[in-house]
Design a protein around this nucleic acid. Structure first.
Lengths: 223, 223
DNA sequence: GTCTATAATGGGATAGAC
DNA sequence: GTCTATCCCATTATAGAC
């Protein structure tokens, strides 16, 4: 063509860094930190291994960068949903269900409708949350979400002053425990139901989960 | 000493193989398959690395051997507890709680009172159950427990014919999801409660868990 | 059964040309 | 910013002496 030759600049750092992050996010979320090599990531991202070091330093720093890329947006979504749920009026049962739903919906929304990156990020978060405490270097990250949990517990205790704070804590812990297992997509449900239910159909799961959890509260004294 | 020199026979295969299994069980349960090297295991077991190959072949075979060592006894314990729970009479709520407790108690008993090996084995099972389905080579093992789950779902459906089988499935899946997270000892509860509750105090957790789960069933139609 | 030695590969990380 | 080349160490696994 007669166009003046555009400078085909292969130096496009932002895009490359993002591709590395995407590849790392996907692989780490499926096989865990130790199950993935920088070579795996570089191959998936179609870049040279050395570029992972150039952009992110070490493997651990890359892992942290993956976790941090979406952390703020994710946390804001969950916090915002709680603020809306706090404004719901009605019976204590209705208000309780609203808060429970507020926790899970931003997560499910991002996983199902946020694009593949978000789906992988959510699974990675669940994987991290399901690691034994010994695995040290992710703990500082995990604690970033803990204040969010505290605000949910507070909201539920406000709705149920007849419960002890400890029992509200237990209920919310059980809820989180379910959530982290579900989001990691272990395939347990698929196997055990012989395919009738799908681990990755989170939308179908939400209503059942919210009903189950809300009723569970009554087992620990919620009226 | 004047004793006749006893033949100090360092060739004591059963003990050595067991020590390797114990070390592997402990380390795999804390850091996962890829997070542990055969060197780590050999060091922990105080044997030479080559002995892990002599006794078990490859790393994967060692991992499988760890999973299989206690599998039958564990499954029998859970199946036996269900048989006892099926014999309980009373209200549907009481019978439901009996079945729920029957599932969790053999596991908690072994983890808390079966010795350190059992504690590590239980945590390893939970770790495996919390892996994304992609991690292929453990799936054949996991499915060994699936028929047990089906028998629990059957028992609960017998107690609650007013529920659809699907909803009983959902409830039990949620129960299992909680259980696997709890048993992996992620430390989430410890952090979020600022130490008031302990992940590893399973006995304190069982009553809360059973009450929560049993009540959860009412959210999906149990009368 | 246990040990030493070593093979063969893959891993994280860096240097320096372009 | 990107690429090639390379370092150095850890890893799984095997061979063969004891």
């Amino acid at each position: 063509m007669g166009e003046p030759a555009k400078k085909i600049d292969r130096r496009r750092a932002p895009e490359t860094a993002a591709r590395i992050l995407d590849a790392a996010e996907s692989l780490f979320s499926l096989r865990g930190y130790h199950g993935v090599s920088l070579r795996d990531i570089a191959t998936e991202a179609e870049v040279q291994v050395a570029l992972t070091h150039y952009h992110f330093g070490s493997k651990e720093e890359l892992f942290s960068a993956v976790l941090e890329r979406r952390a703020e947006e994710h946390a804001l979504g969950i916090a915002g949903a709680l603020a809306e749920a706090r404004a719901v009026s009605g019976s204590s049962k209705e208000r309780r269900e609203a808060v429970i739903r507020a926790f899970i919906m931003p997560i499910v929304d991002k996983s199902m409708r946020g694009g593949p990156g978000w789906k992988n990020y959510i699974r990675l978060l669940a994987l991290v949350a399901n690691m034994p405490q010994e695995e040290g270097f992710v703990s500082p990250f995990r604690s970033n979400y803990d204040h969010l949990i505290a605000s949910y517990v507070d909201a539920l205790h406000d709705i149920h002053p007849e419960m002890s704070e400890g029992d509200v804590h237990w209920c919310f812990f059980f809820f989180q425990a379910m959530t982290t297992h579900i989001l990691v997509e272990s395939g347990m449900l698929d196997r055990q139901s012989s395919g009738r239910f799908k681990s990755n159909d989170l939308d179908a799961m939400v209503d059942k989960l919210v009903s189950f959890v809300a009723a569970g509260f009554t087992g620990l004294g919620a009226k």
